[in-house]
Design a binder for these strands. Structure first.
Lengths: 342, 342
DNA sequence: TTGAAAGCGCTAACAA
DNA sequence: TTGTTAGCGCTTTCAA
């Protein structure tokens, strides 16, 4: 008895349209539109008849058609590195909340740190005519977005700068945060401090490294080249880097970990050793309090919220020159960063 | 010199259309469509002219119009409880990967555990004519989806059952996982085991409680009512519950924590006390290995992947009766669950 | 190989 | 208060 709908082409599984509702209610198409959109100028009686027809038919407005006509999709796109990365969770959610407050839906995707995939995703979103775009860049050349931005797609970059185009951007204070973290170690009496961070092609990594150097310079300390490991983020390599720092010719008494993955591995390695080595990590981690890990925390939700608010300000017509916002980081002392030098 | 486009209505910030491209290339509209969609039957020369016009104008196909005509949006909706919850990160990402493999985009949103908000979100997605829907239910009555499903929106429920409708569902083995966890404690010699879990209106919570009871029964152990705390998930209340379990008239020697939030708080509270109390938690947590927390781990990514695959199977026309899939959990012994009874 | 016409479902503009 | 017409940008159909 189950009749599998097998019609010709369009028709979304055979859904009723406003025209069908109008026919059933015995009114004009536009009257249905008025009722559906809550516009004024419909008598209660007419409205009731239309509502009944809507119920009976199970009508739901087709927003695709609406979008086509109105020119705004009431949706924004968010492209981040990895939806599964806990750092982006609060950012994602914050963006969603702002979007929701503006009646917009959120389409999102992961670039997987791949510039090509980022571009592919961004352009797919543009083809859907999202009203705006929030991008955590994977690539460093965003000129491909120029025509889109010119055509009116508001765009905000978060966490890392846009490449080769002028746009709104929102960052954490990576430089200041790292500087503060390293200064904290110096204030604790450390003079030999290691830095393990991401590849220098990643902007945040460079900024944090700059912060490290600045703090060392401020403290009047020389940096031994052997203390700095870049491009090290994979667990096994971090392990190696930590061991080199501690067992090398010029051992350090403290380590600054340039991101959360590094921090986690460093904690693991240090836990296996006798030595008391101080550690400060960039980015907070769940349960870091229980483990007593001192960190420089970014406010990932604030990053998302600020970006989304900037975006909607643009969509509401703000016309001032693109600007960069830098959000402060916060040092959270929990023990690992307060260990005295050996 | 900056001319702010201030046209009448539609026109997406004044983007070129296929018609514009056609005019510029001196060909017909349909020829442009052919080139844009890579259809056969266009001479290389014509194609080149069209491509040039596309480049020159910065044309990008308007998928809204395409969708309207074709009837499929190549997008799916994912409604979960909280985009910021790390448990859903891998699920979200897994869904995205499957969607991507099928050329679909992912629209998602958080229900914030609010049935009304869930419905609102789901219906908004239906209005956008997503091809399919993956829902982690907040509510327990999904009859509002019946017309949508009838109209052809494929729907899969994950993590918790759909309410009052027949649909595809994918779960973790909450019952079996909890039973295994509690059995593990019993095998370690515990006879007095507490359970702290979520509200019983949440299906997973009920299942896990069932598992607890089953394991206790299997072990020939009576359950003291005072050992079971339900609806306790907020940190302060969990703290209270743990304290009651340990300091009450009938103190327990082990605790089974019904979800990750409970586990985290329990670990905190136990860390502050002298007593050695065994703990097994449902759901894995980042850094749990460092803290030596024994858990029952769900495979959140597998949940997402399975749900998405089920969804696309439906979209590809699978017509068999809705089915439920249960994915196994895994006990990961790390120390806290292997503490002997006092 | 190419293109003209019709129409997807809706809203804007205007008319009744 | 209500309805009619046109058209958003695209794909489909069918004819050239």
């Amino acid at each position: 008895m189950d009749r599998t709908a097998s019609h010709s082409e369009p028709r979304y599984g055979n859904r009723p349209t406003m025209k069908d509702v109008a026919a059933r209610a015995g009114v004009g198409l536009k009257t249905v539109s008025r009722v559906v959109n809550g516009e004024a100028g419909v008598t209660p009686d007419t409205e009731r008849r239309v509502q009944e027809a809507i119920e009976a038919l199970g009508f739901r407005r087709n927003d695709s058609a609406r979008v086509l006509r109105k020119g705004r999709t009431a949706s924004i796109g968010l492209v981040l590195e990895d939806l599964a990365d806990p750092f982006y969770g609060p950012l994602n959610r914050a963006v969603e909340e702002v979007a929701r407050a503006h009646g917009a839906l959120l389409i999102n995707g992961s670039s997987a740190e791949d510039p090509e995939r980022e571009q592919e995703l961004v352009l797919a979103l543009c083809a859907r005519r999202v009203d705006g775009l929030i991008v955590i860049p994977a690539g460093d050349d965003h000129r491909y977005l120029e025509p889109e931005i010119a055509a009116g797609v508001a765009t905000v970059f978060v966490d890392r700068p846009a490449g080769k185009i002028d746009a709104d951007m929102v960052f954490s204070d990576n430089f200041g945060g790292a500087r503060d973290g390293v200064a904290h170690l110096i204030a604790g009496g450390h003079r030999r401090i290691g830095f393990i961070g991401d590849q220098p092609r990643i902007h945040t990594a460079t900024e944090r490294l700059r912060g490290y150097h600045a703090a060392m310079a401020d403290g009047g300390l020389e940096v031994n080249d052997a203390w700095v490991s870049l491009g090290v983020t994979e667990a096994e390599r971090v392990r190696g880097a930590v061991e080199t720092l501690l067992d090398g010719e010029s051992p350090v008494t403290a380590i600054f970990a340039g991101n959360n993955r590094v921090t986690v591995t460093a904690v693991r390695v240090l836990a296996e050793r006798e030595q008391a080595v101080a550690l400060v990590g960039f980015d907070d981690i769940e349960l870091a309090d229980l483990l007593g890990i001192t960190v420089i925390a970014q406010d990932s939700a604030a990053l998302g919220r600020t970006a989304a608010e900037t975006l909607f300000r643009r969509l509401d017509g703000a016309n001032d020159a693109p600007a960069q916002k830098v959000l402060p980081t916060r040092l959270i002392a929990r023990g690992s960063g307060e260990i005295a030098p050996a």
